[in-house]
Design a protein around this nucleic acid. Structure first.
Length: 507
RNA sequence: GUGGAUGUAGCUCAAUUGGUUAGAGCACUCGGUUGUGGUCCGAGCGGCUGCCGGUUCAAAUCCGGUCAUCCACCCCA
């Protein structure tokens, strides 16, 4: 693939039609398959989701890192695994003018590990904790909740092998979703280390060899290439075979088993709603030991996982870093999270909701209003339409932007040294001394301060949905303990954040 | 990559089953109101009916192809 085309990519037009100027051509310029625009009216949901992701990063000490969208192919080919679908057929890869093999990043972990090694982070206190937020690219067929450019928030902790890290990361992802009012169920499994996994793979292959005839075509080839993937095949025939399949947990060596038991112990202690799921196998080769996914509570098969992650103790070394550098992390699919937020029809406040509109009439008033706007814009949330002349048009705009007050400055007011305050709720108007605008405005806006706030969340329903009550799950005796003390502690500050008084500093 | 459904105005949908100039609501612009928003009334703007070809006196409508979107599978977040 090469960048030859300087013209925007168009569909189905011959060159002649391009030469002839036409009245309308806009329909011919459209987004590339699987890519979409995120329009202004949708930004509030994305903002809400991103804020929640950033808050988690801050709460647990994960420093933001931005890595390039383009990387050398090798960064991903090595760690993710050449046999995986992602590398085999889903990467946006091309050779650039200089002959380099480049790829649009299909995921974030490998980039972060690359950065960790490249910038010598091993000389910092371990683990080093990274947070990233950005778009990833995979050349898959788009469908619901899946795009070729999609957004992920990810958290990676490199240089620590204790099981408490695994548990805390699992907790973080859960908290992120929970903070947004999304009911998630955690699926956990351990796929052991490379040693016990090999043992297990042998056992798996041995088992499936006996039943080759029942396997679907895909699984037959998986048997040779990537036997672990047999486990999450949804074909009925393969499903049947799962009943007697050997369990990975029986093949874990002592260390791996101990590690995993500890992780589960911590999850119990945190009272997290998790399910031990021996069938989940992650699609990337670098994982070992603990792996986990977040499923929406209404998605029982995990068809649209909201996120996932796990340990990748071997990746740093594999990519040329120091040996024995353990690591663990996860990422959350923001597109799916945002879809959930939209589905619930939350009444999310506009992030740039102004309070006051400044209208002007006549040339001298316009000049004065321009200056007034500059004087007030740091103190109040303003809006205006100085390019319009009619008062009607300006009030229309004021109404549409849902401001509480409109300040009207006309010829009369200019010569009197006053300004007119119009309460947009009732239409009551008062003349105010021009020099007292600031104090009068402050006084009036105080009335509204109760229900003010970009806080993002306005309605009772939303508050309820986002309140930090743990969701109840049907997890048997674990539920009965119900000792929330340990977990409510870190979650508590988040309540304040979502509360009305959070004010406007959120963007 | 495989299978299914669908493409008409910015959006949501009509078009009596092949028959005049493709309509409506919402949205947008203007006017009713020369300095007053929401409501109301009136007018206007807006369509290569996805695209290409075929059948026909006649195609948004039927046929073929193509592209796109959505859904499912594969896989994944």
């Amino acid at each position: 693939m090469e960048f030859i085309h300087c013209m925007p990519r168009t569909k189905n037009i011959d060159k002649e039609s391009l030469d002839k100027p036409r009245k309308k051509r806009s329909r011919e310029f459209i987004t590339v398959t699987g890519m979409r625009d995120i329009l202004p009216q949708d930004q509030k949901y994305w903002q809400l989701a991103e804020n929640a992701a950033v808050k988690i990063a801050n709460d647990y000490g994960y420093g933001k890192i931005d890595t390039p969208v383009l990387e050398y192919v090798d960064v991903f080919a090595k760690g993710i695994g050449k046999q995986t679908d992602i590398v085999e057929k889903e990467m946006f890869a091309f050779v650039d003018q200089g002959g380099d093999n480049l790829v649009l990043r299909p995921e974030g972990t490998a980039s972060v590990v690359r950065a960790f090694i490249q910038h010598g982070f091993l000389n910092q206190p371990q683990p080093v904790r990274f947070f990233y937020y950005g778009s990833m690219f995979r050349h898959e067929k788009p469908q619901s909740g899946r795009f070729r450019q999609f957004y992920q928030a990810g958290y990676e902790a490199i240089g620590e092998d204790g099981p408490a890290l695994d548990a805390q990361l699992i907790l973080m992802g859960y908290n992120l979703l929970n903070d947004l009012g999304i009911e998630a169920v955690i699926q956990v499994n351990s796929i052991g280390c490379s040693v016990c996994r090999e043992e297990y793979k042998k056992a798996l292959v041995k088992y499936y060899r006996q039943h080759v005839k029942k396997l679907c075509e895909n699984c037959e080839s998986r048997l040779a290439k990537n036997p672990l993937r047999l486990l999450d095949c949804k074909e009925p025939g393969c499903q049947e075979l799962k009943a007697d399949v050997p369990q990975i947990l029986d093949y874990l060596d002592d260390d791996c088993k101990k590690h995993f038991m500890k992780v589960l112990e911590y999850l119990d202690e945190l009272n997290l709603p998790y399910a031990l799921n021996p069938w989940i196998v992650r699609g990337l080769d670098y994982y070992n030991r603990t792996i986990f996914e977040y499923w929406s509570a209404d998605d029982l098969e995990g068809k649209n996982a909201l996120g996932g992650g796990g340990r990748y103790d071997g990746l740093v070394e594999l990519m040329g870093g120091r040996e024995n550098t353990p690591a663990c992390g996860f990422s959350i699919g923001m597109d799916r999270v945002v879809a959930k937020l939209r589905d619930r029809n939350l009444d999310v406040a506009e992030p740039y909701q102004p309070d006051v509109f400044i209208a002007q009439l006549g040339e001298s008033a316009k000049k004065k209003a321009l200056v007034l706007y500059e004087a007030l814009r740091h103190k109040f949330k303003l809006s205006q339409a100085f390019y319009k002349d009619g008062l009607k048009a300006q009030l229309e705009q004021a109404n549409r932007s849902k401001v509480k007050y409109c300040l009207i400055l006309g010829q009369k007011e200019v010569s009197d040294g006053t300004i007119m305050f119009r309460d947009m709720n009732g239409g009551v108007q008062e003349i105010v001394d021009f020099n007292k605008i600031e104090t009068e405005l402050t006084k009036r806006l105080e009335k509204y301060s109760g229900d003010e706030g970009v806080a993002v969340i306005d309605t009772e329903e939303t508050k309820a949905a986002l309140s930090h009550k743990r969701f109840k799950h049907d997890y048997g005796e674990r539920e009965a303990e119900n000792d929330l003390n340990t977990i409510d502690e870190p979650a508590e500050p988040a309540i304040d954040d979502a509360a009305p008084d959070a004010g406007g500093e959120d963007y």
